[in-house]
């Protein structure tokens, strides 16, 4: 019988870096290039750090939530991090061919490299980040799936999927406080 893991073990798994994540400086440079400037430098750093934590906590092959009305038991996908690490290295290698590492390139040139890498990706939606075929797409998908991104889009404090007072749902969400949140 498989033992159910307790919350401490689970939280430890989320919090403990696995050393399998892509290079931190490179991923920060990628975040600076693809995430909205409107987030501010602190916001981008937070989003990148959350992406890193999310990657570190991933448990490939864990049992997926099984949907209603189906007998099928699925597993989460294989570990995408080796591929994402290679892609980051490839972005850096492409940059170095122009004479500078990826993290030292101007933002527009970093964006140009990313655009080329994502050229053939599906455009009408962002994927489940675990299924993103490129690390830049995974970072975008992870950020835009967050409650913070929804609040930023609607410029309102919705707090999607977070514990909020029930009675407050009657009111229109209050406006997002700029640069103070």
């Amino acid at each position: 019988m498989e033992r159910v893991r307790g919350p401490r073990a689970i939280l430890a798994a989320i919090a403990t870096p696995s050393q399998r994540s892509p290079n931190a400086a490179l991923i920060q440079a990628l975040g600076d290039a693809v995430l909205p400037v409107e987030l501010g430098a602190g916001g981008v750093t937070r989003a990148v750090a959350e992406f890193q934590r999310w990657m570190d906590g991933y448990n490939p092959g864990a049992e997926a939530n099984h949907g209603y009305g189906t007998g099928r038991i699925g597993q989460l996908p294989a570990d995408p991090r080796p591929q994402w690490r290679s892609q980051l290295a490839a972005l850096d290698a492409d940059a170095r061919r122009t004479g500078r590492p990826f993290s030292d390139l101007p933002r527009e040139r970093r964006q140009a490299l990313v655009r080329a890498a994502l050229h053939n990706e599906r455009g009408d939606a962002l994927p489940n980040p675990l299924l993103a075929r490129h690390v830049a797409l995974a970072l975008l998908a992870h950020f835009y799936d967050s409650p913070a991104a929804t609040d930023l889009c609607y410029e309102a404090q919705i707090g999607r999927q977070q514990c909020r007072p029930l009675s407050a749902q009657r009111q229109e969400p209050v406006a997002l406080v700029r640069n103070g949140r």
């Binding site: 689970i10 939280l11 989320i14 906590g57 864990a62 049992e63 997926a64 939530n65 099984h66 675990l130």
Partner: peptide, 9 residues
């Protein structure tokens, strides 16, 4: 938290 983050059961 793990269901929301990863889709785990």
């Amino acid at each position: 938290a793990r269901f929301v983050a990863y889709g785990e059961s």
